[in-house]
């Protein structure tokens, strides 16, 4: 709840009401034009959600057949039934695992991004050191680095390091330092580790820039006051600076979470287990509307969309800022 309050407070502080440039009928025309331009977005999302509650796919505004509204699609999805005619392809536990996997990746990405970029952003914002300017230039370049050039090499390392790491862990297990049960689930843990850390790394340059912007806004006097009051640099960081960038941390966390949540490529490449993304992908790749029962896929997609929409409603302005927030001078 405090998070919400903080976010809301920062939003209110930045909002200042201004007289719009165009008013009255002209404004009405402008808004109508915007609305018209937005119809594909509005329609496509609406059709998705509507279909997830219907007994058939709803694909057009000109409906000339009867629709029965139902929550059956969600039930089928959770039962692992992909169409009314088919039997159970997955168990309920499987489906819950898919959702959990998506969540683990998103939460993991969030944790890695926060833990690495908050301190780095603080250092860049507050400490003058040799190489600082070059580090900032490097981050800017990496921000726009072709990710596809990395994923080949990262996958190579992923294969290359797996068996030596496993062997090392097995030797450790002999000595009892690592539990046998962990060894049994090594493959999965290893894959999750790679998905999370590799995906998170892609977000780091931009996250550092974003966080730096938030640190830059904290008056130096507050930090100095803490230091003169007797705090060390670390204490001042922990007790004074960090609490003041809470809105920034919240924005960063949401951004990182959504980045991990929306990902398809990395989970597709690295993760043998399914997530919501690969579940949908599997239903549609090579399939067709005639053989895939779309209402169930729509239900899965709607569930997949819920956290995104939730964060959307909560953060609004913060999100708009963060789209390019880090790059502001």
């Amino acid at each position: 709840m405090t998070l919400l309050r903080l976010l809301r407070r920062s939003r209110r502080a930045r909002s200042e009401w201004e007289e719009p440039l165009v008013k009255g009928r002209k404004a009405g025309i402008l808004i109508l034009a915007l609305l018209l331009a937005s119809t594909p977005i509005i329609l496509s999302y609406t059709f998705l959600v509507v279909t997830s509650f219907a007994n058939t796919i709803v694909f057009t505004p000109f409906i000339n057949f009867k629709i029965t509204w139902t929550t059956e699609n969600y039930k089928m999805f959770f039962q692992g039934k992909l169409s009314p005619a088919a039997g159970q392809v997955y168990s309920t536990k499987d489906i819950l695992t898919f959702i959990a996997n998506t969540f683990i990746v998103a939460a993991g990405v969030t944790a890695v991004v926060l833990a690495s970029s908050i301190p780095a952003a603080y250092a860049i914002s507050r400490i003058n050191f040799r190489g600082r300017a070059n580090l900032m230039r490097l981050l800017m370049l990496l921000h726009a680095f072709p990710g596809v050039a990395l994923i080949i090499a990262v996958y190579f390392i992923y294969i290359y390091a797996r068996s030596p790491l496993y062997n090392a862990l097995r030797d450790l297990a002999e000595t009892g330092l690592v539990s046998k049960s962990f060894l049994a689930s090594f493959d999965l843990a290893y894959s999750f580790f790679f998905v999370i850390v590799a995906r998170a790394s892609l977000e780091i340059p931009m996250s550092i820039w974003l966080m730096k912007g938030f640190f830059d806004r904290i008056p130096w006097e507050l930090e100095w006051a803490a230091i003169v009051d007797g705090a060390s640099r670390f204490t001042a960081f922990r007790k004074v600076v960090l609490p003041l960038v809470k809105p920034g941390i919240a924005a960063l966390a949401i951004f990182a979470f959504l980045a991990g949540w929306e990902d398809l490529i990395y989970v597709y490449v690295f993760l043998p287990e399914m997530t919501l993304a690969t579940f949908i992908h599997n239903q549609l790749s090579g399939g067709s509307l005639e053989t895939t029962y779309l209402p169930v896929v729509a239900a899965a997609a709607t569930i997949y969309l819920v956290p995104t929409l939730l964060f959307f409603v909560v953060t609004q302005r913060l999100l708009l800022e963060a789209v390019w927030g880090g790059l502001k001078g």
Binding site: L34, S38, P40, I41, I42, S44, Y45, F47, L48, I57, F59, L258, W261, E262, D263, L264, I265, L276, A277, T278, I280, H281, L284, L289, L294, V297, A298, A301, Y304, L305, T308, F311, F312, Q316, R317, L319, L320, V323
Partner: peptide
């Protein structure tokens, strides 16, 4: 604000879901 939010929704939408929207569009 509502329009600007609407237009960044595609950027935030999971890739599989966004693909699905246009798959049947």
């Amino acid at each position: 604000l509502s329009f600007r939010l609407l237009w960044i929704l595609p950027r935030m939408t999971p890739i599989a879901v966004f693909g699905l929207l246009w798959y049947y569009f």
